[in-house]
């Protein structure tokens, strides 16, 4: 009976993995199809959709914009969030628990609600520049990921090391930089990776903030899927998937995947 139970569970697990990978594999397959229709199985193999990417200007612009926004917002969140997390961990500010929850709470709000809030606020404050509005919103989106991982890393960090560095002649900021930063690097890497992915992949917030000429990749992709789905979309998606896997492998080499996921 127990044997049967564990066999059943393993079967479900196998089924789940196949199930989860189905749409991803489909996209990869279609991107190599020789045909413009998505029939299964595909009639032949070709790289033409990858070649046609070279001319997909609006798509490439969107990739570039999303990369910038994700990288910048992650970097800003890393700096602001880490400083805040230090103050929280060290009990430098009152109500540390409330502050920590507040800084991590954008993750708990529905994305569309956040997006609407940003849209309204940008209008009310007269903020017209799409790029900066997007960037500010994405800092808010990425902040919780940084807070969570950095707070978790800091809880394992011995702050006596910072004191030791100061007693050896480094100012407080220099001590943080030379001792704290290298020691919580795994937290930075995993938090930064999740933050980057969250920003790069964000649809519900960005949809309210983009304009005709400034579109992030998820918006542009969805547009294309709705308007004129062809394997070019699959090709760019395939590249995204490969890029993600590459990033995961690099980060895994740096800090270990299990460690990233468990934080």
């Amino acid at each position: 009976m127990a044997l049967f139970g564990s066999l059943f569970c393993r079967l479900v697990l196998g089924f789940v993995i196949v199930f989860l990978f189905l749409p991803i594999l489909i996209v990869l397959t279609v991107s190599f199809s020789s045909s413009a229709v998505f029939a299964f199985p595909p009639p032949g193999f070709s790289l033409r959709w990858y070649a046609s990417l070279a001319n997909a200007d609006s798509m490439l612009q969107a990739v570039w914009l999303s990369t910038q926004i994700a990288a910048l917002s992650t970097a800003i969140s890393l700096v602001l969030g880490t400083l805040c997390a230090i103050a929280i961990t060290r009990g430098m500010i009152p109500g540390a628990k409330v502050v920590a929850t507040f800084m991590a709470s954008p993750l708990m709000l529905p994305g569309l609600v956040l997006g609407i809030a940003f849209l309204q606020a940008a209008r009310d404050f007269g903020l017209r520049d799409t790029y900066s509005t997007l960037l500010i919103a994405h800092v808010v989106i990425t902040m919780p990921f940084i807070m969570r991982t950095v707070l978790a890393s800091l809880s394992l960090f011995d702050f006596a090391m910072v004191d030791a560095a100061r007693m050896l002649g480094r100012s407080y900021p220099a001590a943080l930089w030379t001792v704290l930063v290298p020691n919580i690097l795994p937290g930075f890497v995993s938090g930064g990776l999740f933050a980057f992915i969250a920003s790069f992949d964000n649809y519900p917030v960005s949809i309210f903030l983009v304009d005709v000429r400034t579109k992030t990749l998820p918006i542009q992709l969805l547009n294309q899927v709705e308007m004129s789905p062809d394997p070019t979309v699959a090709a760019i998606s395939a590249l995204l998937i490969l890029g993600t896997i590459a990033a995961l492998i690099v980060c895994d080499r740096l800090v270990g995947l299990k460690r990233m996921a468990s934080i």
């Binding site: 789940v16 993995i17 989860l20 990978f21 189905l22 749409p23 991803i24 594999l25 489909i26 996209v27 279609v30 229709v37 998505f38 029939a39 299964f40 992915i197 790069f200 992949d201 649809y203 998820p218 992709l221 969805l222 899927v225 789905p229 979309v233 699959a234 998606s237 995204l240 998937i241 993600t244 896997i245 995961l248 995947l257 996921a261």
Partner: peptide
């Protein structure tokens, strides 16, 4: 293998799903 699909864009996955759901999918 469970974790990896999480990191793939939802738009991409949903796009894959729409292809799967086609009459010739």
């Amino acid at each position: 293998l469970i974790f990896l699909p999480l990191t793939v864009s939802i738009v991409v996955k949903t796009f894959g799903l729409t292809i799967m759901m086609r009459r010739d999918g």
